[in-house]
Measured scan of single mutants.
Amino acid sequence: YKELDVHLRRMESGFGFRILGGDEPGQPILIGAVIAMGSADRDGRLHPGDELVYVDGIPVAGKTHRYVIDLMHHAARNGQVNLTVRRK
């Protein structure tokens, strides 16, 4: 696995990616679609299928989808987010 730290600034449309997973206990949280011309797309480092490991330094492995969405909403209010993702 390769770990990447990604800092994104929120645009009008948000951070520019969707979150998948976390529906079953222990299921990984994954990056879903990366939205064209969004913040994540312009940054270029997030890829669909990347596993989300940390959101603003908070571990999200094994957490629920709702928990991660709530963290992302909090980050959106701050206008930026630091993510750590893991890729095979």
Rank of each mutant, 00 (worst) to 15 (best):
Y1I: 08
Y1H: 06
Y1G: 05
Y1P: 02
Y1D: 06
K2Y: 09
K2F: 12
K2P: 00
E3Q: 08
E3L: 11
E3N: 12
L4H: 07
D5Q: 12
D5C: 11
D5Y: 11
D5K: 13
D5T: 14
V6A: 03
V6M: 03
H7S: 14
H7C: 14
H7Y: 14
L8W: 02
L8V: 06
L8D: 02
L8M: 05
L8E: 02
R9K: 15
R9F: 10
R9V: 14
R9S: 12
R9T: 14
R10D: 06
R10T: 15
R10L: 07
R10C: 13
R10P: 13
R10G: 10
M11G: 15
M11K: 11
M11W: 09
M11D: 15
M11V: 09
M11N: 15
M11E: 15
M11T: 15
E12D: 14
E12W: 05
S13E: 14
S13Y: 08
S13T: 12
S13H: 13
G14K: 03
G14T: 04
G14Q: 03
G14P: 00
G14F: 02
G14M: 01
F15G: 01
F15I: 00
F15C: 02
F15L: 01
G16K: 02
G16Q: 02
G16N: 02
F17C: 04
F17S: 01
R18P: 02
R18Y: 07
R18S: 15
R18I: 06
R18C: 08
R18V: 07
I19L: 11
I19H: 00
I19D: 01
L20I: 15
L20C: 15
L20N: 14
L20D: 15
G21Q: 09
G21L: 07
G22I: 05
G22M: 04
G22S: 10
G22Q: 08
G22V: 07
G22D: 07
D23E: 14
D23V: 10
D23R: 13
D23F: 10
E24C: 10
E24Q: 13
E24Y: 13
P25C: 07
P25Q: 08
G26M: 05
G26H: 08
G26V: 02
G26Y: 06
Q27V: 10
Q27T: 12
Q27P: 03
Q27E: 12
P28C: 04
P28Y: 02
P28H: 04
I29E: 03
I29G: 02
I29F: 13
I29V: 10
L30G: 03
L30D: 00
L30S: 12
L30Q: 12
I31V: 12
I31Q: 01
G32K: 09
G32N: 09
G32R: 06
G32P: 03
G32Q: 09
G32Y: 04
G32F: 01
A33H: 13
A33Y: 05
V34N: 05
V34T: 07
V34A: 03
I35L: 13
I35W: 07
I35K: 13
I35P: 11
A36D: 10
A36Y: 07
A36K: 15
A36G: 08
A36M: 06
A36E: 13
A36T: 10
M37I: 04
M37R: 15
M37T: 11
M37G: 15
M37H: 15
G38R: 02
G38I: 00
G38H: 04
G38P: 05
G38M: 04
G38Y: 00
G38Q: 06
G38K: 04
S39D: 05
A40S: 05
A40F: 03
A40V: 04
A40W: 04
A40K: 04
D41I: 04
D41L: 03
D41Q: 11
D41S: 09
R42W: 05
R42E: 07
R42M: 12
R42D: 06
R42Q: 12
R42N: 08
R42H: 08
D43F: 03
D43N: 07
D43C: 05
D43G: 05
G44C: 04
G44N: 06
G44A: 05
R45V: 07
R45G: 08
R45H: 08
R45W: 04
R45F: 05
R45I: 07
L46P: 01
L46C: 02
L46N: 02
H47Y: 09
H47L: 13
H47N: 11
P48I: 12
P48N: 07
P48M: 10
P48F: 06
P48K: 12
G49D: 06
G49Q: 06
G49C: 03
D50V: 00
E51M: 07
E51Q: 10
E51A: 05
E51G: 02
E51V: 06
E51R: 05
L52D: 01
L52C: 02
L52H: 00
V53P: 01
V53S: 07
V53A: 08
V53E: 06
Y54P: 01
Y54F: 12
Y54C: 14
V55A: 01
V55S: 00
V55K: 02
V55N: 02
V55C: 06
V55H: 00
V55F: 07
V55M: 09
V55Q: 02
D56Y: 03
G57N: 11
G57R: 08
I58D: 07
I58W: 10
I58K: 14
P59Q: 13
P59C: 15
P59F: 12
V60H: 01
A61N: 09
A61W: 11
A61C: 11
G62M: 07
G62Y: 06
G62F: 05
K63Q: 11
K63E: 09
T64I: 07
T64W: 03
T64G: 13
T64D: 10
H65L: 11
H65M: 10
H65P: 06
H65I: 13
H65E: 08
R66A: 14
R66I: 08
R66C: 10
R66T: 12
R66V: 08
Y67W: 09
Y67K: 12
Y67Q: 11
Y67N: 11
V68R: 00
V68C: 09
V68H: 01
I69T: 15
D70H: 10
D70V: 06
D70P: 06
D70I: 06
L71A: 06
L71P: 00
M72K: 02
M72H: 01
M72G: 00
H73M: 10
H73C: 10
H73V: 09
H73I: 09
H74R: 14
H74P: 00
A76I: 09
A76G: 11
A76C: 09
A76W: 12
A76K: 14
R77D: 14
R77N: 11
R77K: 14
R77G: 12
R77Y: 11
N78R: 14
N78F: 08
N78Y: 08
N78V: 13
N78L: 11
N78M: 11
G79K: 08
G79W: 07
Q80L: 08
Q80W: 12
Q80S: 13
Q80H: 14
V81R: 00
V81K: 02
V81P: 00
V81Q: 00
V81A: 03
V81F: 02
N82T: 11
N82I: 08
N82F: 10
N82V: 09
L83A: 00
L83P: 00
L83S: 01
L83K: 02
L83C: 04
L83V: 09
T84V: 12
T84C: 08
T84F: 05
T84S: 09
V85W: 01
V85A: 03
V85T: 01
R86H: 15
R87A: 10
R87C: 07
R87P: 03
K88V: 15
